[in-house]
Simulated scan of single mutants.
Amino acid sequence: MIECYHDSMKLKEMIQNYIPFNEQEAKDKDFILQAMDVHEDLLHRSNPFMHFSSSCWITNQERTKVLMIYHKIYDSWAWCGGHADGEEDLCAVALKELNEETGVNQYRLLSDKPFSLEVLTVDGHIKRNAYVSSHLHLNLTYLVEADEKTPLILNKEETKGVKWIPIDLLKQEVREVWMMENIYQKLVNKMKGAK
């Protein structure tokens, strides 16, 4: 069973070694590396401009469905994920968020290396009765396989729903058009080539 890398490979080195899938990933990889050269506090939300986050792209064994949450802030079906909050092992962060947001604790991590990377815009929003200004997420995504028969749990603090969505219905379910067309569709395309 594959486990997260647990600091055996430092975050910057891992990103430097990442092979981009497309132009978006190539440009975002360069952006992230430049940001790491300029900012020292990218693992913490205290950096109001940008900080690291981590996501899971969760598929069933047949690669026909993905597990998504209905995110309250984005008002859309979305992947699982969250902030690094000081943790350098972003794989562990993604898996923790998977469990917290869906209840899934039995899964197969398909690689301890990122499956995808992206720089994402986050619009200003209210969280815990306080305004959070627009900022960037420097995001690493990990590919995870889970059994769609596993019982799911709704995390009412952050989500309005959790369910398996057939890949061919994603465009109908996801309300964030840019995310669907540029990130989720990319992940679907990459997943088709994943083992």
Rank of each mutant, 00 (worst) to 15 (best):
M1R: 09
Y5E: 10
M9K: 12
M9G: 02
L11F: 05
E13A: 10
N17K: 15
Y18D: 03
Y18A: 03
P20E: 01
P20Q: 04
F21S: 06
F21A: 07
E25L: 09
A26F: 05
D28R: 09
K29N: 08
K29S: 07
D30M: 13
I32Q: 04
Q34N: 12
M36K: 07
H39T: 07
L43Q: 06
H44M: 11
R45M: 14
S46R: 15
F49H: 15
M50N: 11
H51R: 11
F52S: 09
S54N: 09
S55E: 09
N60I: 07
N60H: 07
R63H: 13
R63Y: 09
K65W: 01
V66W: 00
M68Q: 02
I73M: 02
I73N: 01
S76N: 05
W79G: 08
C80T: 15
G82F: 01
A84P: 03
A84R: 08
G86P: 01
E88C: 03
E88S: 14
L90Y: 09
C91P: 04
C91H: 04
A94I: 00
A94V: 00
E97A: 06
L98N: 09
N99W: 12
N99E: 15
T102L: 03
G103Y: 09
N105M: 08
Q106M: 08
L109V: 02
L109C: 06
L110W: 04
S111T: 07
K113Y: 12
F115M: 12
E118I: 10
V119Q: 05
L120W: 08
G124W: 06
G124F: 06
H125Q: 09
I126T: 15
K127A: 12
R128C: 09
Y131T: 13
S134A: 15
T141R: 03
T141Q: 04
L143K: 02
V144D: 00
E145S: 09
A146R: 00
D147C: 06
K149T: 13
T150K: 06
L152N: 03
L154N: 04
T159K: 11
K160Q: 15
G161D: 00
I167A: 06
D168M: 03
L169G: 04
L169A: 12
K171C: 05
K171R: 11
W178N: 05
W178S: 06
Y184A: 07
Y184I: 13
K186G: 07
M191P: 01
K192M: 03
K192T: 00
A194N: 03
K195H: 00
